[in-house]
């Protein structure tokens, strides 16, 4: 009897062992968990794009469709001569720039489906936090285009999450993104006139949006000596070059948008 029992045991063990072996021989893939992002205001585009790449090829699950086979447009390779996604995103939908197109694609995928594909993509807001979505957009833009995602986009999370150290090694910053308060606090109005009042050391803030587009305003704040406005040559070099360190990205964007809006 014991001989039979042992034989039965041996058969069971061999069968179980065989199945276990088969499962070990095939490629071992572990499904990753998306890392919890907590983007503070002063993240660099590179860091944002790098975080986005991890989401894209990892836990976001994007490559399951985008990148293999024909379920969805391949984003990292050239498609039909239009270039990679960063190069083609701006011209996909008329009247929509790259950033808003990508945001719409991720949050309301059914709004525009690339011809030849089916409407199968889920709303990514159910899977990813807002800052993760923006990081992914930054990554996609970095594929052949320029990263224009900034802290103002994921405005809700500009403040460091409770429990995490605020902006690790950054300089002490006030959190306000209220532009007028910032212009006063950072001493801008000491040289630039606003609402028709103020000293004429730098160009007036009034109508600045008419003279300069937003990116040039941003450049002028970060690199004040790169260009000098006509008529202010004598004051060239007066403006401090430290605003890049003094402002968080959210604050910088707040100022830039505010100034660009002054027409």
């Amino acid at each position: 009897m014991w001989r039979t029992n042992l034989k039965v045991l041996a058969v069971a063990l061999i069968v179980i062992g065989f199945y276990t072996m088969v499962a070990h021989v095939i490629p071992q893939l572990q499904s990753e968990v998306p890392e919890a992002l907590a983007l503070t205001g002063d993240v660099t585009p590179e860091a944002l794009a790098a975080a986005g790449e991890r989401i894209y090829s990892g836990a976001g699950g994007c490559v399951a469709c985008h990148g293999l086979g024909t379920r969805a447009p391949n984003l990292v390779t050239d498609q039909g001569g239009e270039g990679t996604i960063g190069a083609r995103c701006g011209s996909r939908r008329p009247g929509m720039d790259c950033k808003s197109y990508l945001y719409e694609s991720m949050t309301n995928p059914g709004a525009f489906v690339v011809p030849g594909f089916e409407n199968i993509m889920p709303d990514m807001r159910r899977q990813l936090a807002d800052d993760q979505i923006w990081a992914t957009i930054a990554y996609l833009q970095s594929l052949g285009g320029e990263v224009t995602v900034t802290a103002s986009d994921y405005g809700t999370s500009t403040e460091a999450p409770t429990g995490a150290a605020p902006a690790a090694a950054g300089p002490a910053l006030t959190a306000t993104t209220e532009p007028l308060a910032l212009l006063r606090e950072k001493g801008c109005v000491g040289c630039h006139a606003i609402d028709g009042a103020g000293p004429p050391i730098g160009p007036s803030f009034d109508g600045m949006g008419r003279r300069l587009p937003a990116d040039q305003i941003r450049r002028a704040i970060l690199l004040p000596n790169a260009d000098t406005a006509k008529g202010y040559e004598q004051f060239a070099g007066t403006m401090p070059q430290t605003f890049g360190q003094m402002l968080s990205a959210a604050q910088l964007e707040a100022i830039v948008q505010f100034l660009a809006g002054r027409r």
């Binding site: 890392e35 907590a38 983007l39 002063d42 993240v43 999450p161 950054g170």
Partner: peptide
């Protein structure tokens, strides 16, 4: 702008959860 990489793992948050 700033070279501070403001990318934090919300480790503390996750730990609290």
């Amino acid at each position: 702008m700033t070279d501070v990489v403001g990318l934090l793992q919300a480790a503390a948050q996750a730990a609290a959860d």
